[in-house]
Amino acid sequence: MPHSADKRETTMTQERIGFAGLGLMGHGMAKNIVTKGYPLTVTAHRNREAVDDLVGRGAIEASLEDLAASSTIIFLTLPGSPQVSEAVARMAPHLKPGTVIVDCSTSDPTVTTRLAADLATRKVHFADAPLSRTPKEAWEGTLDCMVGADDAIFARIQPVIATWAAKIVHIGRVGDGHRMKLLNNFLSLGYAAIYAEALALANKVGISTATFDSVIRGGRMDCGFYQTFMGYALEGNREAHRFTLSNAYKDLRYLESMANAATVTTTMASAAKNSFAGAVAQGGAGPEDYVPHLTDIVARANGVTR
């Protein structure tokens, strides 16, 4: 008789995991999957360092098509719905019935539900499991995750997600994870737009960023997002919160689209979206232009030197 630990290992390795999208979040997530015992196949990424690191830890590199054919659960962490749709289209002819695709990207829920319906005709399952927190938590395996899936599929994918997430919430049906993620990002990005404008106004009327922070930090308006935002605005750490302005703009466009479909006015969400639209239009669309850098763009627009 095998020991109980051996039984757990046998159960764990029954699933063969594929992973596409080894960017800021995906690299750490995939690292946790392979180091915690799951067979892992990854596909080529512009970040060769991530691929080479994972292969060094025991992963196999393959084309997206071969990854699809050899995996039972496939995770996607891609920039958005167009890239997810393209990846699914490439994989679809190679997927075996019973395979589960888990989209961890921040995607448009209408696209998510359409992909799920299309794949169901092939007896392939689809779930959405978007993330919250930063690449630091991805590497540490302590991300937050919100999942849209039926109960049986959630039970199947939850142990794998638990390799890289400390908080996992089963939101509801397919698409609900992405719906909740957009609401989550509306709150955080709305805060970012408010912080940037408040800091510009503070400086304009003679209150320094340090003085502003001395009042907010530790008070009722303090929070974890505020602290990472101020890691740049106050301390100058350009990588304090590595989420790009262009991704923020994309997420708020998706939120606005969801609200339009639900016939809900978006007075606040559209205002936040316009802050990021302006930032991207003013040169903030680069891969290292992150959300807290909005502070500088809003300051410049108001003639403030930080």
Rank of each mutant, 00 (worst) to 15 (best):
L189W: 01
F75K: 08
A20M: 15
T134Y: 06
R173Q: 04
G231P: 02
I194C: 00
L294V: 10
P159E: 05
A279Q: 07
R114D: 02
S132H: 10
N237A: 14
L234F: 06
D151R: 13
S85G: 04
R8S: 12
D6C: 00
T244W: 13
P39K: 00
V102R: 07
G231H: 05
T113N: 09
F225C: 03
V160S: 08
N184W: 06
A200S: 15
T10V: 11
N260Y: 05
A279Y: 13
G18Y: 06
M12R: 13
L24G: 07
T35K: 08
F276R: 01
I161K: 01
A202V: 00
E140L: 15
A166V: 01
E239Y: 11
M1W: 01
A271G: 03
Y232T: 03
D53V: 00
N260P: 02
P287W: 14
G26L: 14
M146A: 13
E86T: 11
Y249L: 15
I207G: 00
E61H: 00
G231S: 09
L201S: 03
M12P: 03
T305H: 12
V55I: 10
F243L: 12
L64S: 05
K181Q: 08
P39I: 10
L143C: 12
G278D: 08
I168F: 09
A279R: 04
T77H: 06
M12K: 12
T10Q: 11
N302H: 15
T72D: 13
T72C: 11
E140M: 14
E137K: 11
G231D: 11
G21D: 13
N47V: 05
A261T: 06
A44T: 12
Y191N: 12
R90G: 02
A279K: 10
N247W: 11
S63D: 10
N32M: 04
L143Q: 11
V147W: 08
D52Q: 04
T77D: 08
A240Q: 06
G284D: 10
V88T: 11
I101G: 09
V147S: 15
M258C: 08
V215L: 14
V84T: 07
F243H: 12
G236I: 09
Y195P: 00
D289Y: 09
K181E: 05
A155H: 03
A44W: 05
N247Y: 13
A277N: 00
A193F: 09
L201R: 04
D222E: 07
V215N: 04
R133I: 04
H94I: 01
A152D: 11
T99C: 14
L234M: 10
G141E: 10
S105A: 14
T266A: 13
A301T: 04
T99I: 12
A277T: 03
S71H: 01
E15C: 00
I33Y: 03
A89D: 10
L183I: 15
I161N: 00
P82V: 07
S188M: 08
R8N: 10
D103K: 14
T265W: 01
I33D: 07
S105R: 11
